[in-house]
Simulated scan of single mutants.
Amino acid sequence: MKRHFTKIAIALICLGLVSTYIISAYKGYKNRNGKNIEMPEVKFTKEGTLSILDADGNSIKDLEIEVAKTPYETQTGLMYRKTMEENRGMLFMFPRESVHSFYMRNTLIPLDILYINKNLEIVSFAKNAKPMDETSLPSGKAVQYALEVNGGMMDKWGVEVGDKISFKED
């Protein structure tokens, strides 16, 4: 049973990686006339709400969120988005708490990445991650969630390590 689950998990990860590669390759595809064919921008789909709370439980900011749970959703994240409204973000949900790392390949907008442990506490972050940069942005600590919001929002909202989140999926 364990082997079967492992094979399925590996197959899903491979499928996600292949899909990401195909999307990346398509982004730069040229037609017969040599003109670039652009991928249509991915549109926001509200899948839940999330509140960022200070250490005392007071609300700092309420957001509409998309949720990334599958390997494919986690791999693509906010890639190919040209804009994102200030009150929106993407919550990444990992099956278990561990050190995770992000990068900005094919991400067109700067992002703040908040790393959150299993107790829903913000334990680290990456501020103003540079678009299209493939530099690793590790959590540095074991986390079960990550939240991506527009770059500069952590400072604007006054979010700090030790603050918490609460969320509800639609």
Rank of each mutant, 00 (worst) to 15 (best):
D62Y: 05
I109M: 03
E64V: 06
M84F: 04
S98Y: 04
Y29S: 09
C14I: 15
E85V: 09
N119E: 12
K130I: 15
E97Y: 07
N128A: 12
G158T: 05
G162H: 04
N128E: 13
G151C: 06
N106P: 01
R105Q: 13
D54L: 08
Q75I: 14
K69R: 15
M153K: 11
K35P: 00
T20W: 01
L91W: 03
E134Y: 03
I13N: 04
T83S: 11
E41M: 12
K43P: 00
Y26Q: 14
S166K: 15
H100R: 15
K156E: 12
D133F: 05
G48P: 02
R81W: 01
F92I: 09
T83M: 07
L108Y: 09
S19K: 06
M153C: 07
T135C: 05
S24P: 00
N58K: 15
E169S: 13
V67W: 00
E86L: 12
A68L: 10
V67Y: 01
M104H: 03
Q75A: 14
G77S: 11
P110D: 08
K30I: 07
C14D: 01
I116F: 03
L12C: 12
K156Q: 13
A11I: 10
D133A: 11
I165P: 01
R32K: 14
E134N: 14
G48I: 07
T45I: 15
V161K: 10
M132C: 06
S136K: 14
L147F: 04
Q144P: 02
L147W: 02
P138R: 11
P110H: 08
K35E: 12
I113K: 02
F167E: 04
G28D: 13
E66T: 15
C14S: 14
R81P: 01
G16I: 05
V159G: 03
N117H: 05
K141H: 10
Y72P: 00
Q75G: 03
I10R: 09
E64Q: 14
K168N: 12
K82Y: 03
T83W: 02
I13T: 09
K156H: 10
L114Q: 04
E86F: 06
F102M: 11
L91E: 07
N106I: 08
G34Q: 07
E64D: 15
T76R: 14
A126T: 15
T135P: 00
V143L: 06
N31K: 09
E64Y: 11
I23S: 08
N36Y: 12
E121N: 08
E47W: 03
K118A: 15
G158D: 03
D62R: 14
E160V: 11
R3S: 12
E64A: 13
L120W: 01
D56V: 09
T6R: 13
L12M: 14
E121W: 02
T20E: 07
Y72F: 15
V161T: 12
T83L: 05
H100P: 00
A146Y: 03
M1E: 09
K43I: 14
G16Q: 05
N150C: 11
I113W: 01
T74K: 15
V161S: 05
A9D: 05
K35I: 10
K30W: 00
I109F: 01
N36S: 13
I22S: 05
I37W: 00
L120M: 13
I165E: 02
D54K: 08
